[in-house]
Design a protein around this nucleic acid. Structure first.
Length: 923
RNA sequence: GCCCGGAUGGUGGAAUGGUAGACACGAAGGACUUAAAAUCCUUUGGCCAUUGCGGCUGUGUGGGUUCAAGCCCCACUCCGGGUACCA
């Protein structure tokens, strides 16, 4: 019998589906295990060979855990709201829902071909009202909450209202956008509208006027992680800073917990480091600099309090609220000119053109330690969003301040012994302090680190400032001026103040509209919806939620996907708890993986979930790049020259479809049919073949290097695809896709198959397994078990090849061996495993088999080979009895004639025998 | 600039400080075949010897630690990724 993968795979897929093999239920008699993939956004291009890399890896792990007796949750769904479907709708008028469903169906077809063990009964789609009901529900909860800075958790807003009505807002334990002082009396006399406005300052989901990344081309606001270097990640359009009223999530309140939580989870150091940088904790001091001639101060943040004696000027961000207060009438015109100029620069221009710019405000501040007056400037190198939007400038020890001081000719005072500041600043936090003592504070002679500590103590004691921890992490901007997203469960009351709907009004369904552009008046597309009003007739919010809204809690919904009463029932949550292994790309490090953790922590605060972290272990799969092929056309002809002959000609390289190239050899007949202009192509061959050039590039349609998994499955079968993708190299490594080695794994499967069948005869027998065969098998069990645990699948695949080669050489056809081998292979190649499993007479599915354990007894050697080295260099090997005592072993080694040669008659100084089976003789 | 990775044959890649290059691809030669495909066998880091068993050399560069370094330490070069006027 031939290894007919097409029939086999079809047969078992049907069997698995009809018998609901992969259906999972809560089962308290078994330990749970939750293996999750980052669900895909169903794009129009379909699945390419890069997607399944992670899915196969997680599928192997899920199947392995199941074989080990765990109750494994391994679901899949679709992140189905997003910009591309909406952009497509604007261009073609096709409703995004239609596009999305088509794409989902295509994805499903492609996924089904690969033989994953997903429980499709648990599928979620973020655009399904039954699903986004719970996205809206969480938003309402966030709106009705504030973050208590003493308890460090979310609490109902009513508790805060009570505190304010009793004590006012001074020193209240609530995370806020800005500090606002309101006494209890003032609060109690406020109107409903005023109270609502004030509470916005504290809510976890709040409407705030903030600087946002506005992308005019996309007509929407973007989050920080959706923008890179002033360019939108989707579409690549310029982004500008704009002050707008937007829904925000108070993620910054959770900065400390998000940071500390990283120490409790098993993620790669590199991605934890990325998150740490993104959260950006910096310990420093907040200091007040009095304004000259005024009874007011200016608050700044610094991590270098020790450099206070070197402060020669102050700088404000252009958007700083202090600007108004310090600009003098004489400088007013110039400042306004500057602010105007800054405003009209896009983020990108600002980054590209990093010239020193700035303007003097006319006012001075007083250095609180030295008492000296120093000028206050405005410059866009100071960011409004970080710290207090104002800095003390120390040109000698900060490169940006240095550049500014040089440009405006401001004094530079060096503070560290021996540093040279004639050409550049000395930024390192290292050295001995000088020029830094007066009657108030003495830092001279101290090391920088000591000086920082001493200054911090001094400023809090002297009442000049306080020690402060600052985070770079900003609140998430949660509004998008788009149609294809979750509607906010929000309406605007008679005061124009936002109010949330009642929970029993959810889901608030996205209305159907027929045009997807913003309205003529510039409102978001939802402005076109008829009767977009709450039950009470008041207008509903026109913005929708961003992409990360729906993906922030989907892992919880999989636990209990059909529950209409709760996001997840307590019972389901307490059983499944959190994700044991999460597989996905690193590109979500500062987006989804932060938002999900935030969202989970918020739900945790109220006890809706029982684990503080959503993803215990994270595996990052690398990207699969494209491998493009080129043909070389001789200029002005229709003649193509093979790679190694092209140097003799003047040629133009042309991208050629990789699907008509095999191992860099062009199929010339297919090439002629590929495009009409190549119909009459002629070739200059080498050794009768046309060899193509290649390059590693991004996988894209325009480079003709996209490989669909379907094509590979059609040619080689799903099992070969699965094995090959794992064999390609370590899972976390990025690599170009090429099929050069795929024949190898395909041959392996065939070889295995022919251990079972000779001609039409089934040749597995009940004969007893030989010790060699048992040893080979148990070596494999040990290796594969260890490898799967560490996700080293590539070496596992090699181990299978070695084992089958050994068994084949032994002519072993013992059922005893293959029963266990097939179970081991099941996670990697489930179809062929199922087929051979049944061929051996097993009734039930191999998915319910038991993962074998290895027996060290079988692995024991009677004879052992030692490598004998002289001064560390191995010269020969000897084979001895495994239990030979050390002295005899040394004698045996030295008795060898080759040993005599290397010793040159000398006596060894030392002989080292290592458990690794090495004898090193030091002469 | 800062942070994190990485560098091993023609290629993808193996090597808890202990015989570097497992396994696979490709290539070369051979067997079977009228032929091709498929399959099987042999060789395959480089250099030298190959009527000698073998020898030398070799993991980006230069040092160091060690009986022993691809692996550890120091300095450097190059490549990849993340991030940035973050005070």
């Amino acid at each position: 019998m031939e290894y007919n993968f097409k029939e086999i795979e079809k047969k078992w897929k049907k069997y698995w589906e009809e018998n609901h093999i992969y259906k999972v239920e809560t089962d308290k008699s078994k330990p749970k295990y939750y293996v999750l993939d980052m669900f895909p956004y169903p794009s129009g291009a379909g699945l390419h060979v890069g997607h399944p890399l992670g899915y196969i890896a997680s599928d192997i792990y899920a199947r392995y855990k199941r074989l080990q007796g765990f109750n494994v949750l391994h679901p899949m769904g679709y992140d189905s709201y997003g910009l591309p479907a909406e952009q497509y709708a604007i261009q073609t008028g096709q409703h995004p829902e239609v596009t999305t469903i088509n794409n989902i169906n295509r994805y499903r077809q492609q996924l089904d071909k690969i033989g994953f063990c997903f429980d499709w009964d648990r599928e979620v789609r973020t655009c399904d009202p039954k699903y986004y009901k719970w996205t809206q529900w969480a938003f309402i909860k966030m709106f009705k909450s504030y973050f208590n800075t003493e308890l460090k958790k979310a609490r109902p807003i009513e508790e805060l209202v009570k505190i304010i009505s009793e004590k006012g807002t001074e020193n209240i334990p609530a995370h806020c956008t800005e500090e606002i002082k309101v006494s209890a009396d003032e609060w109690n006399q406020m109107s409903k509208k005023e109270k609502n406005q004030l509470l916005m300052n504290y809510r976890i989901a709040y409407l705030g006027e903030t600087l946002v990344n506005w992308c005019p081309k996309l007509g929407t606001v973007l989050a920080n992680d959706e923008v890179s270097e002033g360019i939108s990640l989707r579409g690549g359009y310029p982004v500008e800073q704009k002050l707008m009223k937007q829904w925000c999530l108070r993620v910054s309140a959770y900065a400390e917990r998000l940071l500390n939580g990283l120490d409790t989870i098993d993620w790669t150091e590199s991605i934890k480091e990325t998150q740490r940088n993104w959260i950006g904790r910096s310990e420093g001091a907040e200091m007040i600099f009095p304004l000259a001639g005024k009874n007011e101060g200016m608050k700044i943040f610094t991590t270098r309090a020790d450099t206070i004696f070197g402060v020669t000027f102050m700088v404000l961000a252009p958007e700083s609220e202090y600007v108004e207060k310090v600009v003098t009438s004489s400088q007013k015109d110039e400042v306004e000119k500057y602010l105007d100029q800054v405003k009209h620069r896009t983020e990108r221009e600002r980054i590209a053109d990093r010239k020193v710019t700035g303007v003097f405000t006319g006012s001075n501040a007083i250095n609180p330690v030295t008492g000296k007056e120093i000028p206050i400037y405005i410059s866009d190198y100071v960011l409004a969003g970080y710290g207090t939007g104002a800095i003390m400038a120390v040109p000698a020890h900060d490169s940006r301040d240095y550049a500014f001081a040089k440009h405006f000719n401001l004094p530079i005072i060096p503070l560290i012994e021996g540093c040279d500041v004639s050409e550049e600043s000395f930024d390192a936090k290292d050295g001995i302090m000088m020029n830094s003592s007066n009657e108030k504070l003495q830092l001279n002679g101290l090391k920088v680190k000591e000086a920082i500590a001493k200054t911090k103590v001094f400023i809090s004691e002297a009442g000049i400032g306080k020690v402060k921890v600052n985070y770079r992490l900003r609140d998430a901007i949660f509004s998008r001026q788009r149609y294809w997203g979750e509607p906010f469960p929000v309406f605007y009351d008679e005061d124009g103040q936002p109010q949330v709907l009642e929970e029993n009004e959810l889901p608030l369904e996205l209305p159907k509209i027929d045009q997807f552009k913003p309205t003529e008046t510039g409102e978001p597309p939802l402005g076109r919806a008829k009767n977009w009003k709450a039950k009470n007739g008041q207008p509903l919010e026109l913005c929708t939620m961003p992409g990360f809204a729906g993906s922030s809690a989907y892992y919880l919904r999989y636990m209990d996907p059909h529950n209409d009463e709760a996001l997840v029932s307590k019972e389901a949550d307490e059983y499944w708890r959190n994700v044991d292994v999460y597989v996905g790309g690193t590109e979500h490090a500062t987006g989804h993986l932060i938002y999900s953790r935030f969202w989970n922590k918020f739900l945790y605060d109220y006890g809706y979930v029982c684990e503080p972290e959503p993803f215990k272990k994270l595996i990052n799969q690398g990207m699969i790049q494209g491998r493009s092929n080129f043909v070389y056309r001789i200029k002005d002809t229709n003649k193509f020259v093979s790679l190694n002959l092209k140097k003799d000609y003047d040629v133009t390289p042309i991208h050629v479809d990789v699907n008509i190239v095999s191992n860099d050899i062009l199929d010339t007949e297919k090439f002629k049919l590929w495009r009409p202009e190549f119909k009459d192509a002629e070739f200059v061959l080498e050794d009768g073949k046309y060899v193509c050039g290649y390059a590693v590039e991004k996988m894209s349609k325009s480079m003709f290097n996209v490989v669909n998994p379907d094509d590979v499955v059609d040619n080689y079968g799903a099992d070969t695809l699965r094995l090959y993708e794992m064999f390609l190299g370590p899972i976390e490594q990025s690599k170009p896709w090429d099929t050069n080695g795929i024949d190898g794994v395909n041959r392996f499967l065939k070889k295995l198959w022919y251990q079972f069948y000779k001609g039409d005869q089934f040749i597995i027998t009940d004969e007893k397994a030989s010790p060699e065969a048992l040893k080979s098998l148990h070596k494999l069990i040990k290796k594969v078990t260890g490898d799967i645990e560490t996700f080293s699948y590539n070496t596992s695949v090699s181990a299978f090849m070695i084992c089958v080669n050994e068994l084949s050489a032994m002519k072993c056809h013992s059922k005893e061996i293959y029963q266990e081998l097939i179970v081991l292979l099941t996670p990697f190649a489930p179809h062929i495993s199922e087929e051979l499993w049944h061929a051996m007479g097993n009734e039930s599915t191999v998915c319910d088999a038991k993962w074998p354990k290895w027996n060290e007894e079988y692995l024991k050697e009677s004879k052992v080979t030692y490598a004998v080295s002289f001064n560390g260099k191995t010269r020969f090997t000897i084979e001895v009895d495994a239990d030979m005592p050390r002295e005899e072993l040394e004698k045996e080694a030295l008795a060898n004639p080759i040993a005599q040669k290397w010793m040159e008659g000398k006596t060894p100084r030392k002989i080292i025998v290592v458990p690794k089976k090495i004898i090193n003789v030091v002469i």
